[in-house]
């Protein structure tokens, strides 16, 4: 009888846990970003305005709590097991252990997960039958007009965030603004991985040895630049250029995207 009860209880609890896990999975609302034209920060032969098809995007960045579920379900992505080729030594370093964010970190459960590599982010998205958004998709989504904040120009708003050092504790998701598509925190919380972050390389000196970089560097005077004052776009461009796929960085998170069939 005792055994039976225990088993029953266990079954109920594990069922609950599974339900919770599923709840988390189901909870991540995706919104539709309408088709549009992505205009690159500057135009070259390899970087032209692109037609972007409508797609779905997570309404906010993936949180620590959500990422924990992924790590539980995929042992290869535990901190102690991960392959260094896919995540550097900073991978999830802000967590207490492999499978615990930690009680002292209770205030970041619903903050964007950071210190995750591109490979980890992409693996998470794949696990959810999603993928990382492309630069074009991300930029199109990121240009959405803010709904619920007062601002003079989006560029100014973004630059204001870029110029502040990281806060000691990363705030929760959905704490900045929501934009016209219903997306939260596209700017102002964390940087986000994109699928093809390094497709346009400025891995070098941003004054560049490649033709593209040279054009980017000469941005201030180049007629090819869409907006000479788009310093925010320029900063995202150089940030992405500094990345490698296995980097894990304290202000870099991600959200997933999905095609609309």
């Amino acid at each position: 009888m005792k055994y039976f009860l225990t088993i029953l209880l266990l079954t109920v609890f594990s069922g609950l846990a599974q339900a919770q896990e599923k709840a988390v999975i189901a909870d991540k609302k995706m919104v539709t970003v309408a088709a549009g034209i992505y205009k690159p920060f500057f135009e070259t032969n390899d970087s032209r305005p692109l037609m972007v098809a409508a797609f779905k995007m997570d309404e906010c960045a993936v949180t620590n709590a959500e990422f924990l579920e992924f790590v539980k379900a995929n042992p290869a992505w535990r901190r102690s097991k991960v392959n260094r080729l896919f995540a550097d030594s900073n991978y999830l370093k802000h967590w207490e252990s492999d499978l615990s964010i930690g009680k002292i970190n209770a205030n970041i459960y619903h903050s964007p997960v950071v210190n995750v590599s591109w490979f980890a982010a992409q693996a998470y998205c794949k696990w959810k039958n999603k993928r990382l958004p492309t630069i074009a998709e991300w930029e199109l989504a990121g240009n959405g007009k803010p709904r619920n904040i007062k601002y003079t120009s989006l560029t100014e708003y973004i630059l204001g965030w870029y110029k502040k050092p990281n806060p000691p504790v990363l705030p929760n998701v959905k704490t900045t603004y929501q934009n016209q598509y219903g997306l939260y925190d596209m700017h102002g919380l964390v940087w986000e991985w994109t699928f093809n972050f390094n497709s346009f390389t400025s891995k070098a000196d941003s004054r560049g040895s490649t033709e593209d970089e040279a054009k980017a560097f000469c941005a201030a005077g180049s007629v090819k630049v869409k907006d000479k004052n788009d310093y925010a776009g320029f900063l995202r461009f150089s940030y992405r250029g500094s990345l490698k796929g296995n980097y894990c960085i304290p202000n870099l998170g991600f959200r997933c995207a999905k095609d609309i069939p």
């Binding site: 891995k203 070098a204 250029g241 894990c248 202000n251």
Partner: peptide, 10 residues
């Protein structure tokens, strides 16, 4: 400059 572009924490 080419050899030293470093992301935060790197």
């Amino acid at each position: 400059a080419e050899a030293t572009l470093v992301a935060p924490g790197q």
